[in-house]
Design a protein around this nucleic acid. Structure first.
Lengths: 184, 184, 184, 184
DNA sequence: AATGAATGAGTATTCATTCAT
DNA sequence: TATGAATGAATACTCATTCAT
């Protein structure tokens, strides 16, 4: 029998770590299966620490999904910022779907969890709204506002159908679909 | 002393009713907030009846979401079957998005709940897969297979972005986006 | 190591027992210190049984205090019913205070717990109201309505001051105070 | 990044303020619902300050209720000191009940919370004992010791029954009841 | 001298499932 | 065949108190 190590710990960044770990737990068990207990265990933090740092599960989920949205939007932005012309932009979008979105089942799952919450909770709908606004703004580096909006929707649909259908669409199909939307 | 009213023993269609009511409960509380108790109460059925009729929550959800997908796919199919030519078909798709999908927040919410489950559970991914196959087949009454697939994805994206963004897209925008995808 | 006895028990009257035991726990720890856990343990009942039988602590306390009030009112009633004339009635009241009220510290404590709750919660104020109505009705067997009301208040005050003051009033003092109120 | 406003370090009278605020919290939530956290928040004081200034909740409650009793007794005293003769004293007592006691539901609630604690805790019973001694002493300005004691009990009973019964007694009834007790 | 962060024990309540009837 | 009562595990959350700073 070993004695429990002295529980009191100097642990800066704990709050931050909890937020990150929350996404791991949601990715693994879904929002439906997420609990303070599971998060606390995964973050190696006492259970009481959870409600000390966060008002409740809602606040925690909002913080966590905000972080998810920011991270994905950053990458989205970076890809498009790196594109030099319209054709490179189109390729950036293709890569974005095939590599970034479809390439990370974890983010995919988390994204749908977020959408499900957002469909019900205005606080989380604000997260999706801000995210979509950033996406469109990034697309407007290369496309007009209308096209950006259509394209943003198409990207969403292509990713979703590739994820939940039997087989993902081919890169060529994705490129072709996108070409149809962005060609005047 | 009043006695409890005799629980109804003769209750044909109980199983069916439970399945329907399950969607109501999920719509109201989310999968995360759905429980045997809530469903039993909403269906006016004894709690013990739940595990008597269904192996568990998973089975029940699968049955319920299958029913949801069938119902929405039926409507989708009917709209496109009624279209006489390509232009009518395009309008059918527009109406489908603006009226059927965006017009029913309940179905919207349920759909995303389903997607979230499907992203994790193969049994439910089979439900979304079959649904998408039906959609594409319906679209193929009027469009070639490739276009049907692109269009199906676009429909999804347009509905989702209209639902989770700040404001829904205008009917004209939806029509314009669709036109881009279906025009050769 | 002995194994836990098979938990499932045939236990009719369990609901009743819980209500009774609740008063014991309140008497011992105060409403402030009363919890489902303590009651469950005292009643030898699993914790889950508490919220199975009662909607919440409020319902349980209301049931328990209703029972307390009924029991004390019964005794009150019996004492006065047994009195043959006005003088016997006066003596009955004296005995009631010295023996019944002051003689049972447990009931005294419980009574004040009830008053404290009733001062805040209308549901429990209804309990005190009904109790007081019964007391006055019992007194009206021997005294006019006005006297009954004054006397009822005096009884309360004498009991309370005897309980919370340094020393209880003497029986003679109690008799003398009562005599002043009931003498025309 | 906004920084938390600097907690006020210079805060004379903090201890005093905490004691006063404690009564507010007890009035609002009952002793059962009172916690260091709620008091600290209401007093705008860091939580750690609570156990720094006071040994525990018991000490804090004793201090707070002592203050309550003193305040009510002061008013009681003042009313009777202002009365010039026996008749004015009687009227003072009537006013005391109708205006001071029944006129302040907050004090009423707090008084019963105190009684409930006093019924169990000797430290708080000393508070009620001293309070009652002061009341009787004030009454003895105008009435003999025996009458003062009876009258004190009657006042208590009249206030309590007016508060917890369906309707408060009329001023005339209160005056009549008092007259019976003080008339030789 | 004072406090913000921390924690383990405790709170009410909900739950899926079991099983005697 | 069907169910109401039951229960232990789990849930989110609150709490008084401790203590490094």
């Amino acid at each position: 029998m070993t004695t429990t190590p002295p529980a009191r710990r100097f642990d800066p960044g704990r709050r931050d770590r909890i937020i990150d770990v929350t996404l791991d737990v949601v990715a693994a068990h879904g929002v439906a299966g997420t609990s303070h207990r599971k998060i606390a265990e995964a973050a190696d933090v006492p259970l009481g620490s959870m409600t000390y740092h966060f008002a409740g599960m809602d606040e925690l989920l909002t913080l966590a999904f905000t972080r998810l949205a920011d991270r994905i939007a950053d990458r989205f932005d970076a890809r498009l910022a790196a594109a030099g012309d319209a054709e490179q932009a189109r390729e950036a979008v293709v890569t974005l779907i095939t590599d970034d979105l479809l390439g990370s089942p974890r983010d995919m799952v988390l994204t749908y969890e977020l959408y499900t919450l957002a469909a019900r909770d205005p606080a989380l709908r604000e997260v999706t709204r801000a995210w979509m606004a950033r996406s469109r703004k990034a697309l407007q580096r290369h496309f007009d506002a209308t096209t950006a909006r259509y394209l943003d929707a198409l990207i969403e649909g292509l990713a979703l159908h590739s994820a939940l259908d039997s087989a993902p669409m081919s890169t060529n199909d994705i490129r072709a679909a996108i070409s149809r939307i962005i060609s005047v």
